[in-house]
Write a protein that binds this DNA or RNA. Structure first.
Length: 307
RNA sequence: GGUGCCAUAGCUCAGUUGGUAGAGCAACGGACUGAAAAUCCGUGUGUCCCUAGUUCGAUUCUUGGUGGCACCA
């Protein structure tokens, strides 16, 4: 029997979680979360992470494994997931299940990610200060000298990309572009991508309702606990950053809640824009559960025959 | 009931000395390799309230409606 990783993806709020539970039972396998913000402990309400009770029913990996002050990235996720599949999940079941919407993380698992040095915190800080003092233009000019190839293709207005390219050049003494082979790595298992989507109006309606639900569950209190950490990347997250504006007195409460809805909708749109690049995703409406299961069963069966 | 003001994009509003219109926000599309729920780029999507006039031509001027707001009764 060949091993297969089923990838369940879709925009935020589409209904991945509900379906993932049924699918995990069906496949007799735990759920690997690939929602990068669900990795952080304490952000359960705002990231719609599965509750403790739900995790009692179905084993979940990667939920709440990090402290908000911890550093993590997609490459580490690739390593962690591959090792988990090899040493644990595929030992117990032929099929793994990864569920989420963080596309860079999913891509890292499915296609691999280039071997680039991990960023040194002091260099990043230094460059951030330079960005503040000297402006983006200065960093751009230096990148142009150190890595003309990347400079030619990078989005010159995106300071994060400029900064990252430059910090890799400075750290390694080699051009950032020399690390970017963009080679797709072979995986020792099949990958079956299932995409969930709904008509836009329906999706937005669900997102709006879910935000109201989060507020009822105590999102404001949850966010207040992390107010002292608002400068951290992990808290630069939809559902928290807007409430921090409210705590700071910059926004009215109702306005902040509406902004959470808006930012969630925009996030969903950006996710969909990423998905559109792929032609290996099999799309379904989340309500068609039987159809989805049937499709997965058939696909798994075919993998076994042809390999 | 009377008088005045207003009606233009999803919203708030500009504007056209008469030649079918443009800002902000929203919305929509896109990019994406160790910060990614991040970050960045692009795009006006319109019975200019309705009707009848004047005019070569009306969203703009005039008549009559309709709706809203304010004041007076």
């Amino acid at each position: 029997m060949t091993n297969t990783l089923v990838v369940l993806l879709g925009p935020t709020g589409v209904g991945k979680t509900a379906l993932s539970f049924h699918l995990a039972r069906h496949l007799h396998t735990p759920i690997i979360s690939s929602d990068s913000r669900q990795f952080y402990r304490g952000l359960e309400i705002g990231t719609a992470a599965p509750t403790f009770e739900e995790q009692q029913q179905i084993k979940h990996h990667f939920i709440g494994i990090l402290d908000v002050t911890d550093y993590y990235n997609a490459a580490q996720f690739e390593t962690d997931v591959l090792s988990l599949l090899e040493t644990d999940i595929f030992k117990q079941a032929p099929t793994g299940l990864i569920v989420g919407g963080s596309m860079m993380y999913i891509d890292a698992v499915c296609k691999g990610i280039d071997d680039i040095p991990t960023v040194d915190e002091s260099i990043r800080q230094e460059l951030l200060e330079r960005l503040e003092k000297e402006g983006l233009d200065s960093l751009r000019m230096q990148l142009k000298i150190l890595d003309p190839e990347y400079y030619a293709e990078v989005d010159l207005k995106n300071h994060k990309r400029i900064l990252h390219g430059l910090e890799i050049c400075l750290m390694s003494g080699k051009p950032y572009s020399s690390f970017r082979t963009k080679k797709v790595k072979e995986r020792p298992f099949n990958i079956l991508k299932i995409g969930l989507n709904r008509p836009r109006e329906e999706l937005y309606e669900r997102i709006n309702l879910r935000v109201d639900e989060m507020i009822k569950q105590g999102l404001v209190e949850e966010a207040r606990k992390f107010y002292p950490y608002k400068h951290l990347n992990s808290l630069n997250t939809v559902g928290y950053k807007e409430l921090f504006q409210y705590f700071d007195g910059n926004w009215e409460y109702d306005f902040a809640v509406n902004m959470i809805k808006q930012d969630s909708r925009n996030y969903a749109r950006r996710q969909l824009s990423w998905f559109n690049r792929y032609d290996d995703i099999h799309w379904f409406h989340p309500d068609n559960e039987e159809e989805i299961f049937e499709f997965i069963d058939t696909s798994l069966y075919q993998f076994d025959i042809y390999l």
